[in-house]
Design a protein around this nucleic acid. Structure first.
Lengths: 214, 214
DNA sequence: CGCTCTATTACCCTACCGAGCAAAGCATTG
DNA sequence: CAATGCTTTGCTCGGTAGGGTAATAGAGCG
């Protein structure tokens, strides 16, 4: 609490309201100082270089560059960067992606003040911060096979209402191949048909609401 | 600005961070005073009765009782309640539902401080606050036919990967009837098949990520 | 250098889907 | 009262989906 050198923190969130709220909360703690802010992933990288904060607190869902990509970019330059995710998203894809990218912690936005502050302090010490329930989910996810790049393209075709033949034409492969991918997708997502597969795609974060391009 | 009686405002959001951020922003304006806060829709109704605020600023997605339901409950008791929605959700269903429930405005969370403050002042005067682009979307939505209750039940069956026969059994109706509903759904959602219909259901907010019950 | 996973193609076959067409009862609304 | 929309049921039929099974080739890993 009475640290001579306060923890230098950077906030990254596209919502000004959230940044101000976090700043207001963290202001109450003398051992933490907000030294930089960014509104998207691209800005986050630039600001990180300039401010060289001890800890980064950032959202996943952001315009321009997503939080996951931003982590990858920062960690690529500074492997020991201490980045915490603070987000509303509890999608499998985001949680798993965050830690694979090199995040040191994942906090849900309905967490209490104390939890956030504690996470920042733990991250600053170089340790990982993660709740038991999230750790359990991560362990469970590690067992499950990933959806491949190609399969994701097929899944996106299904989402758009394309038939197997249509998908085969857009991807320039045989319809048989598409069927094989569909079969693999149904198995991995434990779905009875393509409608359920699309639903699970949304639930897991493989498919997103934004890129509808309708 | 130099009003003798400040606007008495209530904040409703399940995220403490957001409430604190809003409070921090609104504090800067002397004509606005935060007199109450609530963390969910049910609490909002109770607090509204106690505090009788001039204007309410609330989120849509909340536990226990959603923002839309909360508006309905408050407006049912106090028809001239001035309620503004402040949310990240730009789903058709939420926007349309909000105004049908009696909201006076709809602000996206990436709005600037000034926009939020302005909306509060306009609502306090008794007027409606809505941006042009949202108004256009509302007009467009008014043209489109609603998905009926029954159709939504069928759509939820599709989301779960049920066949038409399975759906007919769970709803205790003929399979022919289910097929008729499916046809209506595909037409209304402009979808080629059930997979796309499920996708559009998520995009429009008819289907939600939370109630997966898997 | 095998093992595993992915991508690719292929065949068969059954069950299911969705289009087209029709109609009747009921509630609501203009 | 006519119009509209929802709910319900029915029929036919071609196309599609998805299960089962199998094989080849390349990438990555231990």
């Amino acid at each position: 609490m009475t640290t001579p050198y306060p923890i230098r923190l950077m906030l990254v969130d596209d919502h000004t309201v959230v940044r101000m709220g976090l700043a207001a909360i963290l202001q109450l703690h003398a051992d933490i100082e907000v030294v930089a802010e960014a509104e998207d992933g691209a800005q986050a990288l630039l600001e990180y270089r300039k401010a060289k904060p001890d800890v980064v607190l950032m959202d996943v869902s952001m315009p321009v560059t997503s939080g996951i990509e931003a982590i990858q970019n920062i960690v690529a330059e500074t492997p020991d960067a201490k980045i915490l995710l603070l987000t509303m998203s509890d999608l499998d894809e985001d949680i798993q992606g965050a830690f694979e990218a090199g995040a040191r912690g994942y906090i849900l936005k309905n967490a209490s003040h104390e939890e956030i502050v504690e996470a920042v302090r733990i991250a600053n010490k170089g340790d990982r911060y993660i709740t038991d329930s999230l750790q359990n989910r991560l362990n469970a996810l590690a067992q499950i096979k990933h959806i491949s790049e190609r399969e994701l393209e097929v899944l996106e075709g299904m989402r758009r209402g394309l038939t197997n033949r249509d998908i085969s034409l857009t991807l320039d492969i045989s319809e048989h191949t598409v069927k094989a991918h569909v079969k693999a997708i149904l198995k991995k997502l434990e779905s009875a048909d393509r409608a359920e597969a699309v639903a699970r795609g949304f639930e897991k974060g493989l498919l997103r609401l934004n890129d509808s391009q309708t």
